[in-house]
Design a binder for these strands. Structure first.
Lengths: 192, 192
DNA sequence: ACCAGACGTAGACAGTGTCTACGGACACCT
DNA sequence: AGGTGTCCGTAGACACTGTCTACGTCTGGT
């Protein structure tokens, strides 16, 4: 989307996001991003002192887009908290699988802080909504703890599915059944 | 452990495993491994045609060591399937957190097949034990499906914890409570 | 008109993975 | 003994990477 005449800083992040979606994480070279943005390899340094800071900015864009997608899916799913939780889970996993490279980038351990806000903090709003839904679906439980466990479960399904080992182990390519299983375990008492 | 006079092939894998444990994933340079093994940078090529194949061999060693650790922990935990499942989960997570770099290497998407056996297949024996325990703890459920979901949950907890976002979101540094939560959700009916 | 600052270019440097040509040791055969 | 392969590691080249520094070039303000 609009990447002409919008400042090099944003354009670099745009190009990076498109590049990681199209060709994967290992394609996110500093020089390649600069090339596709139409500038020399030294230009990004004006805005991002190091390669990792540029990658962090791209990852941050991933977090905001993930939050938008999840928020939209949640709103479209009506008022029932169980349905909202299911929609959130599906949206998260759809993102993790479709935007596999971006998802991998977002959770790299060597991309900690950059600018004024750490990268980990960008996951907090999304996590907050998850916790709120867990609290409504399972009133008795420690919502943050169970929410954290559920988040980890979704995360793990996304990673292992993208890796290819999960469908190999379980013996099915049916992604929805996997999601349903997780939801049944956590939201409880309708699957089983 | 014995890495003198044992053939360069094994020595390279030894050095790689030590290096990733000591300095993390980004230290696993082909030239650095060769340096620490005391050979020139062209030497590994005799046994591993490409850098990725050497990394795959190191990752395979990680899988076998993980299987050994988990197997030992399981045997030491007595006959009760619920206790065995808990021991398996704890051993898996201890590995994922302590050997964070190795765990990250093992599940990289760009290290698919190498030699005669794919890398994903190395996770199957461990997964098989997990499924068997799930079948005994929850006789009614589809053991492979639930086992896959549980595996993903453990995997996700390990990754997110190593990333640092999980303890930030949940608000505790108590790793054991996190594990207990997952086990209570899956092995059921004693926590809650 | 002139200056100062912002912005991008161009080239150097060390480090990386891959490829090719080379050397030396060792066993084996006549 | 003398030659001959074959294994196994070395050395150097090549293109590529991220970082650093010096240099233009263009703009706006006084």
């Amino acid at each position: 989307m609009g990447d002409s005449e919008a400042g090099l800083r944003e354009r670099l992040v745009d190009v990076g996001a498109e590049l990681v979606a199209a060709e994967g994480l290992q394609a996110l070279t500093l020089r390649e991003i600069a090339r596709r943005a139409g500038v020399s390899h030294g230009a990004p340094r004006r805005y991002f002192p190091t390669h990792r800071e540029l990658l962090s900015a791209i990852a941050r864009r991933g977090f905001t887009e993930l939050a938008e997608r999840v928020g939209r899916a949640e709103e479209e799913s009506g008022p029932d908290p169980r349905a909202r939780l299911a929609a959130l889970a599906r949206a998260y996993l759809r993102f993790a699988v479709e935007q596999h490279g971006m998802h991998e980038l977002m959770f790299r351990h060597d991309l900690l802080e950059s600018g004024h806000l750490g990268l980990r903090e960008h996951s907090l709003p999304l996590f907050g909504r998850l916790v709120e839904l867990v609290a409504r679906v399972r009133p008795g439980a420690d919502a943050r703890l169970v929410g954290g466990a559920l988040w980890a479960n979704l995360h793990g399904v996304g990673r292992l599915w993208g890796w290819g080992g999960l469908q190999l182990a379980v013996g099915t390519d049916d992604f929805e059944r996997m999601v349903d299983t997780v939801l049944a375990v956590y939201a409880g008492s309708d699957g089983e």
